[in-house]
Amino acid sequence: MPVHAKICGLSDSAGVDAAILHGAAFVGFVFYPPSPRNVSPFVAATLAAKVPPHIKKVGLFVDPDEKLIRSVLTNVPLDWIQLHGSESPERVREIKETYSLPVIKAIKVDSASSLDEIARYDEIADMLLFDAKEPKSMENALPGGNGLAFDWELLAGANVSSPWMLAGGLNSTNIAEAVRISGATLVDTSSGVEFEPGRKNPAAIETFLAAVAAIDA
């Protein structure tokens, strides 16, 4: 089965152009002010206008209020909403119904017990995303995009009904192994294709997407 990739945390034209040119299936924009990847609705709208219809535009939010979501959706034609905070299943359902958009819910993983969360969100969210849980000892940790991987073996036997995506420390050198071990057919990277947090490297995007395409081959 083909593997499809999402490039998340895009904030400039060079990164978006590289994602489009080299075969991303999803592009992600972060609407979370503490993140170095945060973009305003105005900037995101300008970038989203470059994206062809076959590539899905994802907006990443962390425990968002209605004002933020409405501000973004008024300006940016998103295809998906990604929730990367501590949103409850009820909140996920509410956002889906209010905005009539499919929702990706992130589940933070650091042990087998983390996968207990699958049962809470499976089939309420339209897609699950498994990301590495940030350790309490990590300074200035973000809800995602910390460049941390988790034990992909945990997902090998996971019982998930919804489509799901693998994230967390993925880059061109480990993506083939990550897919082999986890069985993922959807993958997501942000920090793995950057010069520095918040600044995407177009050449690294090209290399990552080529590595994903090589898995299919």
Rank of each mutant, 00 (worst) to 15 (best):
P2F: 02
P2V: 02
G9P: 06
L10H: 01
S13I: 14
S13M: 09
G15L: 11
G15T: 09
G15C: 03
D17A: 14
A18F: 10
I20M: 02
G23F: 10
G23E: 12
A24L: 09
F26R: 05
F26C: 00
F29D: 07
F29K: 02
V30P: 04
P33W: 07
P34C: 06
R37A: 02
N38E: 00
S40P: 04
S40I: 01
T46L: 10
T46D: 13
K50A: 13
P53D: 12
V58A: 05
L60G: 07
D65L: 06
E66L: 13
E66D: 15
K67S: 14
R70C: 04
S71W: 07
V72L: 11
V72S: 10
L73E: 10
L73F: 09
L73I: 15
T74V: 07
T74G: 08
D79W: 09
D79Y: 04
D79L: 04
W80K: 10
W80F: 14
W80L: 15
I81T: 11
H84E: 02
G85W: 03
G85P: 09
G85V: 06
S86V: 11
S86F: 06
E87D: 13
E87C: 07
S88A: 06
P89A: 04
V92P: 08
R93S: 14
E94H: 14
E94R: 08
T98V: 13
T98H: 09
V103N: 09
A106T: 13
A106V: 14
I107D: 11
K108Y: 00
S111T: 04
S111A: 13
A112W: 01
A112Q: 13
A112E: 14
D116I: 00
A119Q: 12
R120G: 00
E123F: 07
I124N: 06
A125H: 12
L128Q: 08
L129F: 07
A132T: 10
K133L: 12
P135L: 10
P135W: 03
K136S: 15
M138I: 01
M138K: 13
E139D: 12
E139K: 15
A141W: 07
G144L: 11
G145D: 04
L148D: 03
F150V: 09
D151F: 03
W152F: 08
E153T: 14
L154D: 11
L154A: 08
A156M: 06
A156S: 15
A156D: 01
S161Q: 14
S161G: 13
S161M: 14
S162A: 15
S162L: 05
S162K: 05
S162G: 06
L166I: 00
G169S: 05
L170V: 10
N171Q: 10
A176Q: 14
E177M: 04
E177H: 10
A178L: 01
G183P: 06
V187E: 08
D188F: 03
D188W: 00
D188G: 01
T189P: 03
T189V: 13
S190H: 02
V193L: 01
E194D: 00
F195A: 07
E196G: 04
G198T: 09
G198V: 05
R199A: 12
K200T: 05
K200I: 01
K200F: 03
K200Y: 05
N201V: 01
A203K: 05
A203R: 08
A204W: 06
E206N: 11
E206C: 09
A211R: 09
A214D: 13
A214F: 02
A214M: 12
D216F: 00
